[in-house]
């Protein structure tokens, strides 16, 4: 593998996945967002979103809080400081790689 492509191979694959990238991008701009908003904005089904959130939570990039608003259950998602740092790192890596190209 060439030196240029090696940089891309080190890229964070948790964030690199398009659906997860969309999720963390949204969360980087807000304090928190609920499941419904993320589902609609990322264009995912409930099952898909649950899968991707689980991956992000496993990596420590998001925190998920299940709460209630009145009697309605609500799932709130927040980007953790580690998630924000990972997104910044990812963007920097991508910019560097694209600059070389």
């Amino acid at each position: 593998m060439s030196a240029d492509l090696r940089g891309l191979a080190d890229i964070d694959r948790v964030i690199h996945e398009p659906a997860r990238l969309a999720i963390v991008t949204i969360l980087s701009l807000v304090e928190s967002a609920d499941f419904l908003y993320l589902q609609r904005e990322a264009g995912l089904t409930k099952g898909n979103l649950s899968f991707h959130l689980a991956k992000l939570e496993e990596a420590g990039y998001v925190s998920i809080e299940k709460t209630y608003r009145g009697r309605v259950p609500l799932t709130l998602v927040r980007l953790t400081p580690e998630g924000a740092a990972a997104l910044r790192e990812y963007r920097a890596q991508l910019r560097e790689f694209l600059k070389k190209g």
Partner: peptide, 15 residues
Amino acid sequence: FRITYPRTGYVAYKK
């Protein structure tokens, strides 16, 4: 809270 959030989701913006 009555109309928007149940319809298209809740977002809390950074203060």
